[in-house]
Amino acid sequence: MAKKLRMNSFLFCCALLGALPVGLILLALLNITLGQLSDPEFLWLVATESEVVGTILLTFFAGLCAVIILLIVGTPLAYLLARSATKTAKVIGTIIDLPVMLPHTIAGILVYLLFMPNGWLGAPFSAIGITFQDAFFGIVAAMLFVATPFYVTTVQEGFGKVPVHLENAARTLGASPFTVFRTVTLPMTLRHISSGSVLAWGRSISEFSAVIMIAYYPMVISTLIYNRFMTGGLKESSAVAFTMILACLLIFGILRFIAGKIGGTYDRV
């Protein structure tokens, strides 16, 4: 799979232009790293603060909850969208993509209107004791709202790559539609499901605007960094930010490694 590229002038130009975005990210990371390492004691103090650690864990956990919900409800939706060529499916696909297009503050307002204590969904839920405003579930709801298109689109593409006649062959061999999905379609889509989950998780934990509209407290990491920036200044907020960068690098590094081992690519079926 790893093919060695033979350099030519076109590829050289690609590399030259492509160096810009890569360089930008690296430069930003280098900048913050050198800044933080110049005062390691302060960094350690902030990084081990219970509020910081707690917020990071809460953020990851809320994102994970959103991903688990997506796995359960987003996977069947992605399958339907991949297998249906009707106009309705196209309309639904567009609706699902909407949160990507919307400014996040708008997403926040939409989520808030729906889930606030007297909102369409907030009211019945609060009747059974589940509140969203300034609550963990509010964070999950906002994350779910913004992460859904990333998960559904990725997994839909994966299902689309499983040829229908493979499923047909399985049906003629005696498998029910659900068994076909479980034994043929799903295993062939594992790679897309795992990368869709990682994307959705990443999108969830990075959400700020949509989350603060419905739940400023408990704070997620973005809220905490913003809060520290406004109250304690740049030094404190960048120490929290750097701690989160390290946590993200670690977790997504591990996830990428695991995702690389899951499933295979079956483009040449």
Binding site: P163, H165, L166, N168, A169, A170, R171, T172, L173, G174, A175, S176, T183, V184, P187, M188, G263, G264, Y266, V269
Partner: peptide, 29 residues
């Protein structure tokens, strides 16, 4: 229903399940 017809089909591109071994493919039905 399809799965109860006892009619097997072999497609032009064989439609073998790529994530299974040949043995698992043959044993599938």
């Amino acid at each position: 229903p399809v799965e109860k017809r006892g009619i097997a089909i072999v497609y032009q591109d064989y439609a073998l399940f790529p994530h299974m071994t040949v043995e698992a493919n043959i044993c599938y039905g």
